[in-house]
């Protein structure tokens, strides 16, 4: 195999997909976090209908394939007059999908804070808003962080599905190169690039966890 061709032609071509992959990931993750927070809030604090709506949303998006959701938004919505470019459609589909998972992560983190913490806050005269703001949310976000970072890493990989509707992200470029050069080993190169992005992200997560861990928490759990 021609090393210089690999290094100077194929690799740079693939790497141009990295910013697109990262944009897809960041945007859909942020959309998912914003929408997921609202969905979690609807489940925890909402009236019955709101909570039922949120639950149905979550079940629907977790129970159907992401690929179907991408196709639906890209090819289905134009039927009702909503035409989106492939990048936007991907961000929305992946973001809506991730919202379902992030909502569950946030909801179960809030639920994991023991009843006694609410009682203690109440006994000190805190209002409900103060209790959530100063006592419950700060603990819940620490509980949720590892799972949220996992979700982020998962999204880096899921964005490869956007290639199917033509977004020129990392995997789309890989496929293009493979069909152009007939060198299937390029798939390995793509896998290595994904790994090179995902591994440090997971490491970063571990660092965050240690940095913001509640001192003594682990010891208390055993």
């Amino acid at each position: 195999m021609d090393i210089s061709r690999f290094l100077f032609q194929i690799l740079p071509y693939l790497m141009e997909g990295i910013p697109v992959t990262m944009q897809l990931t960041l945007l859909s993750f942020s959309l998912g976090l914003a929408l997921g927070s609202v969905l979690a809030a609807a489940r925890v604090f909402g009236s019955k209908p709101l909570s039922v709506f949120s639950r149905s949303y979550i079940e629907f998006f977790r129970g159907t394939p992401l690929l179907v959701q991408i196709f639906f938004i890209y090819f289905g919505l134009p039927a009702v007059g909503i035409r989106l470019d492939a990048f936007t459609a991907s961000v929305i589909a992946i973001g809506f999908n991730s919202a379902a998972y992030q909502a569950e992560i946030l909801r179960s983190a809030i639920k994991s804070i023991p009843e006694e913490q609410y009682l203690a806050a109440e006994s000190l005269g805190m209002t409900t808003v103060q209790t959530y703001r100063f006592i419950i949310f700060p603990q819940a976000i620490r509980v949720a962080t590892p799972a949220l970072v996992n979700e982020f890493v998962a999204l880096i990989k899921y964005t490869s599905l956007a290639s199917i509707i033509g977004v020129a992200e990392l995997f789309r470029r890989t496929e293009y190169m493979v069909s152009y050069t007939f060198m299937p080993e390029i798939y390995l190169l793509a896998a290595a690039i994904y790994l090179a992005i995902c591994l440090p992200t997971s490491q970063f997560s571990k660092m965050l966890e240690t940095r913001y861990a509640i001192p003594g928490y682990k010891r208390a759990l055993v």
């Binding site: 006694e116 203690a120 006994s123 000190l124 005269g125 006592i135 620490r142 509640i214 928490y217």
Partner: peptide
């Protein structure tokens, strides 16, 4: 009534069996 409860809770302190400090 929230205002009453605030006054009541400002004049009572509660110590729990399991301490219930805020761990964070």
């Amino acid at each position: 009534d929230p205002a009453t409860l605030r006054r009541i809770r400002a004049s009572t302190g509660f110590v729990f069996q399991q301490y219930n400090l805020f761990p964070h």
